[in-house]
């Protein structure tokens, strides 16, 4: 027997989708508009949690997990640590010239948004039949077979980035 009818389930999942989308957009807005950078990073984390939900709706639960682990768990925390070490003051330009430039940027970006949305709305997207959703096993096999070279290159890039980050952050430090 069923606790909720299938109509109820549809409405529930649609509601969750709307909540995740709103999470993403509002988080991004908070990340950009907030006065203090700590709030910006919190908004960024909110946005990434919402995006993890969207990934779940796109049939990629592995990506949703990775999104939370890498972005929310690593990158946001790292940004917050840097912020505590570097104590930035307000991040936006509060002079008159800065405000005018920001308003101009806002107008330009809204025009861009309207144009892109017009493009998406007017073009037709042919629907292709899907085989089935990819499992984690499929992703791992593809990652190591077809994209093996890229996988190795990414690991080299990460290694060099770690070494470079250590080198840059250490230089200029007084030896005791």
């Amino acid at each position: 027997m069923q606790l909720i009818s299938s109509d109820g389930l549809t409405i529930l999942s649609g509601l969750a989708f709307l909540v995740f989308s709103a999470n993403t957009i509002v988080g991004a807005l908070v990340a950009i508009v907030a006065k203090s950078l700590i709030r910006s990073v919190s908004g960024l984390a909110l946005c990434f949690v919402g995006m993890a939900g969207l990934y779940y709706y796109l049939h990629s639960p592995f990506l949703a997990l990775m999104q939370i682990v890498i972005y929310v768990g690593a990158i946001c925390i790292m940004i917050m640590f840097t912020m505590m070490l570097a104590e930035p003051r307000e991040s936006t330009d509060v002079t008159l010239r800065g405000r005018v430039l920001s308003v101009l940027a806002l107008i330009g970006c809204s025009l861009m948004a309207v144009g892109l949305m017009f493009l998406v709305g007017t073009s037709s997207w042919p629907v292709t039949e899907r085989v089935e959703a990819a499992t984690v096993k499929d992703i791992g096999r593809d990652l190591l077979n077809r994209h093996g070279l890229v996988f190795e290159l990414i690991s080299v890039v990460l290694l060099i980035a770690i070494l470079g980050a250590i080198l840059i952050a250490r230089s200029g430090r007084r030896k005791t």
Partner: peptide, 9 residues
């Protein structure tokens, strides 16, 4: 699109 435009701004 919204994310991209917000990030660009």
């Amino acid at each position: 699109i919204l994310l991209f435009v917000i990030g660009f701004f």
